[in-house]
Amino acid sequence: MAEEKEGLTTAEVLRKTRTYGQVRCHNPSCLGRLQPEPGADRVKCPVCGMEFRVTWIKSGFPRIRGPVWDVNVKIAEEAFQRKMKEEKKDGPQ
């Protein structure tokens, strides 16, 4: 079942989805593809709102260096408050 791409190796299947000039959002539930502006030192994920510092391996090859702490810490704190309120209503997740 689920063998639509019959005959291809896993490597080949995945290689087809390889993109350049983009990075993946570090949020494991998001993993959205982010395309930083050329030379930009930050990028914001349009899907989940997390923000990351960007480093350039070379022109056209960005890499996430780490979180923009103030932004992501705030997102986490809000999420935590929200979830703890929900938990009080519905019991544990």
Partner: peptide
């Protein structure tokens, strides 16, 4: 003890 930091979906997690 629920997790307190990280991505929104990671926050507030315990193992059931």
């Amino acid at each position: 003890e629920p997790t307190r930091r990280g991505a929104p979906d990671v926050v507030g997690r315990v193992i059931d």
